[in-house]
Design a protein around this nucleic acid. Sequence first.
RNA 1: GUGACCGUAGCUCAGUCGGUAGAGCCCCGGUUUGUGGUACCGGUUGUCGCGGGUUCGAGCCCCGUCGGUCACCCCA
Length: 419
Amino acid sequence: MSIKEVQSLPGFREFYPESCAVRNYIFDMWRNVAHRYGFAEWEGPVLEPTDLYRRKSGDEIAGQLFCFEDKGGRDVSLRPELTPSLARMAVAKQREYKKPLRWFEIGACFRYEKPQKGRLREFYQFNCDMLGESAPAIDAELIALAIDVMTGFGFTKEHFAVRLSDRNIWKRFMQEAGVPEENETTLLQIIDKLERTRPDVLDTQLQAIGTSLAAVQEFTASKAETEAVTTVRQQLEARGFGDFVSVDLSIVRGLAYYTGVVFEIFDCQGDMRAVAGGGRYDNLAKLIGGSDMPAAGFAMGDVVIGNFIEETPVAKAKLDAYVKAASELDAYVIVASEERRPDALGIVQKLRSAGLRVDFALTAAKVGKQFQSAEQRNARLAVIVGDEFPEVSIKNLTTREEVKTTSDGVVEAIQHALA
RNA sequence: GUGACCGUAGCUCAGUCGGUAGAGCCCCGGUUUGUGGUACCGGUUGUCGCGGGUUCGAGCCCCGUCGGUCACCCCA
């Protein structure tokens, strides 16, 4: 059977070392920034009862769920996002943790959709959440974290922007415009699509629920703020992040469970795609069957941010530097004389014990070949072990300088040469 | 789910008017045996995605299918 007869599934990922290094770069950045904000890492199940997602989002998302029946007849789904599992876990052990919780997860998520740019069937989400606190300070904290991730990747205010809003502002609009309360969900769905629907269609839809496109446009232009938005904005300004943030009432987020402040991070170079998004979900814990627990969070996906990094030269340069460093070898031990292989192995091991990254030729090969291998393996130094043993040579593969040392002093000499 | 475009060597691709395939890169070996990146020489490589049809003859034309890319839809 040829290898092609069993292909990987569409939209699922295979990480060869090069792309795995890129992935790790993104993960490291996420993890490091989260740690700087005092967040603890957690992980939930990859497979969940389908009900967990139906309950909070409604049946209309079932078509995008990667769901199937397991051998026990259970209706199960690969997680399409991390928040519902988080809400359940946090509710279950609510009393065991001091509030607010600062939790983050990096986990694979799955959505059954046609793969295309920025969207695959398998992707990683970085999810940061704070639970058990209703003050807008946590919204500001989360947005600050997201901004630090972006600047960590090398992005500046020329590249991205945070658009901030509050779903509750539309309640005010509905009262002022006389839109019946039961139309709230419909209104928010229309607002969510403000930028990608034709104006005449929008107007028709809005007329149907008792308002008009003109009224909506006038309202968004007012840049009205709720108290929460004002607080968040001021706290971000106090951190020096004011340049990144602007109020945009058309941001309401698609998810049904958001209840208050919402925000999205946009790529303002290209097509204004959202690279991260989140907000308040004070009712989710209750929806899932727990007691009330105010909460907020955001998610960032590896595919979109990966594309964004690749397309932005300053960010790409940082990524490349990381990838190069990750593949680098401190030393390549050259067995110049086969009789000295045991001694060479001793040195290899000694260097590895000292924490250095070391490789060597496993089988007899000409010295020239071994140098070539050292070069190709991206080694900084070559350690030549030959007939002169216990004298060994250390050659800097960049400067071509060569120094001699002894077997006993080789670790120190290498560390010195690498410094 | 809908649509457009694309599938030829491990990779990037060429292949004319239908006459059973080629280049570059990569990889391996060599340029007289203990010092690398260049150069030169040599070598391996294909069910032309798969299945059917038209034809004396299909990589090329037609149908289907699978896969890929992009867009729409949707976006948790």
